[in-house]
């Protein structure tokens, strides 16, 4: 009985503190600030102050929540909460140094499922908003997820195949090889669309459809969606670091290397986003099914060749 309580306690700790909400939120804001600052400097602007993402969050918390007429109140308010809970739970599974939660067999599958939940929430948020703009955004989000999930899932599954296990800690400890490199490229290919950045910022193209799928959201629910996005940034960058960056025996060094790798990945996708225009949905789709598909095929082939 005690063992159950203590493992439950460690999960709670992982969910709420590290790598969960309490520390992931500031880390997410830090990454958001880094991206915004980098974009600003690349565009020759000054950029926001360090605390700006935090200020944005706090300001949204203080705003009024407006629920459109005819929208199911329960679903409308539950979606952002579910979204934040799912990404945080997903992050709690990632074996970052100092994560108190033990790695379970098959937790990669759980992780992949949890990572789909925020996308599902966004799609639903668009559809329940009863706004034509939100609905078009939801449709785009749903279609785009079909495109970028091919290389994204293949990259992780190829690593699982390589490690011979669906357990995060095994993936992390897998001996470094060619598959790592190929899968990392495939993963990076999916990343800009996963982060909704240019050239794949199709579902949040404000000049085409006014805003993203949470167009009708305001106040604290919107703040939660923004928080979910910030935590998702941490999740994606740290997942990349944990799976594809070779680990050292020293946890503290690992942590620093992971954080640095995360920031480097963010810098790369931000640079790409700043140097490109937004593609159309069909073009993005073609890109992911041709180049993403090709990268996926090569990655999978490499896992089988060995």
């Amino acid at each position: 009985m005690n063992a159950v309580w203590s493992s439950l306690g460690s999960y709670l700790l992982a969910f709420a503190v590290w790598p969960g909400l309490l520390l992931a939120a500031p880390l997410g804001w830090l990454e958001l600030w880094f991206m915004r600052k980098l974009v600003a400097r690349l565009q020759g602007r000054q950029g926001p102050p360090f605390f700006q993402p935090f200020f944005d969050f706090m300001k949204l918390l203080g705003k009024e929540t407006v629920i459109p007429r005819g929208v199911n109140r329960g679903i409308f308010l539950a979606l952002p909460v579910v979204s934040v809970a799912a990404v945080t739970a997903a992050l709690a599974i990632v074996p970052l140094p100092g994560n108190p939660a033990p790695s379970l067999p098959g937790d990669v599958v759980l992780l992949l499922y949890l990572m789909e939940v925020p996308i599902l929430c966004e799609v639903l948020a668009g559809y329940v908003s009863r706004s034509i703009y939100g609905q078009v955004a939801a449709m785009r989000e749903a279609l785009l997820s079909l495109a970028y999930n091919l290389p994204f899932l293949v990259a992780i599954i190829a690593m699982a195949q390589e490690a011979g296990s669906f357990q995060m800690s095994t993936l992390q400890a897998a001996p470094y090889g060619l598959v790592h490199l190929l899968a990392a490229v495939t993963f990076l290919l999916a990343l800009p669309a996963r982060m909704k950045l240019n050239p794949f910022s199709i579902a949040n193209a404000e000049h085409e459809i006014v805003a993203d799928s949470h167009i009708e959201y305001s106040g604290p629910p919107l703040a939660l969606f923004k928080l979910s996005h910030a935590v998702e940034l941490v999740l994606l960058t740290e997942l990349f670091a944990v799976v594809f960056i070779p680990a050292t025996p020293w946890p503290l060094v690992n942590l620093l290397v992971y954080l640095a790798a995360g920031v480097a990945v963010l810098g790369g996708v931000t640079l790409l986003a700043t140097a490109t225009a937004r593609l159309r949905l069909t073009q993005a789709f073609r890109f992911y099914w041709v180049w993403g598909g090709l990268a996926s095929a090569v990655t999978l082939a490499a896992t089988l060749v060995r």
């Binding site: 690349l42 565009q43 240019n198 193209a205 000049h207 085409e208 140097a275 225009a277 937004r278």
Partner: peptide, 16 residues
């Protein structure tokens, strides 16, 4: 036009 195709950096350069 640059803004409408989602090219913010080009917008900044043009407006400078």
């Amino acid at each position: 036009g640059a803004e409408d195709i989602g090219f913010h950096s080009l917008f900044m350069e043009v407006f400078t």
